[in-house]
Design a protein around this nucleic acid. Sequence first.
DNA 1: AAGAAAGTTAAATAAATACTTAATAAATTT
DNA 2: AAATTTATTAAGTATTTATTTAACTTTCTT
Lengths: 183, 183
Amino acid sequence: MSESIEQPQSKIDEAKNKVIGSIAETMDLYGVTPAAANLYATMYFKDQMTLDEMREELGMSKPSMSTSVRRLQEIKMVKKTFTPGFRKHTYAAEKDFFRSFMGFYCQMWEREAKMNLDAIEEAQEDFIDVIKDSNSTPDIVATAKKHYDQLEESKTYYHWLNDLAESIRSGKIYEFLPTDQQD
Amino acid sequence: MSESIEQPQSKIDEAKNKVIGSIAETMDLYGVTPAAANLYATMYFKDQMTLDEMREELGMSKPSMSTSVRRLQEIKMVKKTFTPGFRKHTYAAEKDFFRSFMGFYCQMWEREAKMNLDAIEEAQEDFIDVIKDSNSTPDIVATAKKHYDQLEESKTYYHWLNDLAESIRSGKIYEFLPTDQQD
DNA sequence: AAGAAAGTTAAATAAATACTTAATAAATTT
DNA sequence: AAATTTATTAAGTATTTATTTAACTTTCTT
């Protein structure tokens, strides 16, 4: 048999690996570690996996798989599965990318909104103190006012970000942007 | 003067730094380098800046500022400004977070969709070859079909991601999610 | 309850990446 | 056109981050 003829199984593996590489690369760009990114992409083609199977399949250490799988659980891209009569823990990838998207972005956006709104609140109080302070020169007061107003305006964005996250979590966004619409 | 009484100017700086730290921290989480994140957050409170002012203000090297500012330009978070009769280049931060959001996410999502759709296309061709191949056992064919279908279904997500990006770029999303709605 | 198997935490190492210094290129002024 | 100022590229260094090895804890089985 000529070596140009590929075995069906290896061709399947090759095809899978193209997709795995691509998914992992994009996850990398979003700040997910390489091990976690490769793991998710690998699990995407599997029903469920144990830590040992992951270690075997990716050729990495077990602790690495353990921490990666936990990180993926945190962003809701992997779920623990219960397998009766089986001692090892089993995990399954979230295959629905819409749900993965939700888990990843909504969490991030809500966190961003909270963190920055908290900081803005504190800063605005400080600016008010400066504005009220009799030691403040007119220039200083004007600057404080300008910054206060800038922050006030920016709040609109963070509220919108929370609204966006909420409309994704609730699924309401799909009324506006249907999932089945082919372009 | 007691040291518990704060000078207005330093109080302003302190307040700004709270927000700068918070903005930079969230940008860090999105994979923007610390230097670029701090730079954007600093510029957020400035009209415009030169590379030397950036270096001075952040206490970092000029090349670091140069590469950071370029990265920020790529994601549309900083724009070059023209200052007549002034030799040095000047740059201004995009103060409208809605525009920053657009620049950052739409670019990422469009890139993700393109990359993964390309990989999927290639992989699907391979799976078809395997399905057609007379050397393939029924098991192999079944697996190839399963993977093909899974990839086919996932395309819906990438098309939706493109639609989402498009609706943000066009501003149509704000018809669905108004920016002024306070919660 | 003791032993074994699986998973996690902690410390150490390896790898990646961000940044700085030094050198080069580009642009503006005299 | 030469010189000076500004910006960028490249090479090297330092820092951070990811991963592994080793120790420990938990959980299950006999």
